[in-house]
Design a protein around this nucleic acid. Structure first.
Lengths: 251, 251
DNA sequence: CGCAATGTTGAGTATATTCAATTATCGTGG
DNA sequence: CCACGATAATTGAATATACTCAACATTGCG
């Protein structure tokens, strides 16, 4: 439950970064790759359940997710928790802390994770020397913003069933694009408590709502997660279409 | 109700921009100011109720708010609307459209507004020539993200009363920092429908909730808006503290 | 003046929460 | 190996919260 970090034994070189070979991420020039390789300062491996970033602190580091699922959240004083968004390979973790005074949210691993670590103090150099990478950073921030917009629409105006359908379709899509899910691996690793804390519902009502999606054959709930059986149907219920941007930046 | 744009007769020079004299916004170097002055392509003046940006379109422009209040929103096919955030002087409008394929939300004016217009096509030049301004752009995107995080926490996990208190404290704080509100002008220009669509509540329930805040002497509802009488008390109810960052970037 | 938008209120209904109890699964230690 | 506790999922019942419907008051504007 507490922080549980392992020092990775094998360290990946940016030159052979497995994410770069995926069609979903944009190609780098040799120049950009050289810079990022020098920007990188290490790797962080965590167990499932580990807290990677703590609200109110200010880490000297900035991360990119290499492997695994995680989530960002905030809690109120009395313990009420709201999950803000999920992180998957290619996502930045800790940009806020790098730009502002301190982190305004925490990040926890859903599965074992590997993160690529960068020196916060060298971020401004990136802006000075590599406009294209700076542009990508802003792109990533703008995309996070548009995801949060959709989440707000969901929690604020969709019904419980629509919200649940949206969330699972959304997670399935993110997992699919980043190589975490495919035709055979369709297991989204969240508990019903995570779903409840994302949708702004109680666990009991979340359970009943997920059951309804299961009854309609759209998902199959297993222990600590579910298989997404029919993404199209989920999108239909939620009245949502995934963003069809083909390539995305990645630092 | 429809788009209603006026061509401004008097056009402000960036060198005498009224926002720059405010302590809330960071100072520019002469170099930066020169660039922004050339980046600027015009001004947009709108009436209250005008739609400045339409979801699904892709304007050739990017804006900075100079005067007035506005809001960003999304709607579902059947008309359900969710207000995502409010815009005040110094806020960027249309960054998403400038970076991604198209706008994922609309923007509407709450009061008459003046916006400073920039050429989208020249955005990349900003990244190439002015790292400090690019950094500011990313900072603004990250801050928008952290505001949306707080909104999500609010809609997802706060009670109706807490949500309403948070929203009014939040709007009052934003207005105060950007010169829209002060000791004498404390009128926040939103209808109860706007509040409802921001908080994810019905108008009827919003009305009853606002009345409770009024009964406790924290606000006084007027026609199409309210006076915020006791921000401290609102913050207390919401269990929220405004961000105490002193200066912020502004392009 | 009359319409349109906004704000208000009460009543009945629907949705979602809390409380409480039960089952299943997994890993740990005896 | 099995008992045990911890976490997760499930279910029913009572209650609270929020929504819809409907009617009416108020204001500003053409």
């Amino acid at each position: 439950m507490a922080n549980d970090f392992r020092q990775s034994s094998v360290r990946l070189s940016c030159y052979s970064c497995p994410l770069r070979s995926m069609s979903h991420f944009r190609r780098f020039s040799e120049d950009e790759l050289d810079f990022v390789a020098r920007f990188k300062r290490g790797e962080l491996s965590t167990d499932a359940g580990a807290t990677v970033v703590v609200e109110g602190t200010n880490s000297a580091h900035l991360y990119t997710v290499l492997e695994g699922w995680g989530f960002r959240y905030k809690i109120l004083e009395d313990g009420r928790r709201q999950i803000l968004n999920y992180v998957v390979p290619g996502d930045l973790v800790g940009l806020q802390g790098a730009l502002m005074a301190e982190m305004q949210h925490s990040v926890e691993a859903l599965t074992p994770m590997t993160l690529c670590m960068f020196e916060r103090s060298r971020l401004f150099t990136l802006f000075e020397k590599h406009a294209s990478l700076a542009y990508d950073l802003t792109w990533l921030a703008a995309r996070e913003e548009s995801i949060l917009d959709e989440h707000l629409l969901s929690i604020g105006r969709r019904t419980a069933l629509e919200r649940a359908a949206y969330l699972l379709a959304f997670l399935h899509e993110r997992g699919r694009l980043t190589g975490l899910l495919d035709e055979t691996r369709r297991y989204v690793p969240v508990t019903q408590t995570h779903v409840a804390d994302t949708l702004g519902l109680s666990i009991v009502h979340t359970n009943k709502t997920l059951r309804r999606l299961g009854d309609r054959g759209m998902i199959r709930w297993l222990d600590r997660g579910c298989d997404v059986l029919d993404v199209e149907a989920l999108c239909e219920v939620a009245n949502w279409r995934p963003d069809d941007a083909l390539v995305r930046p990645f630092i």
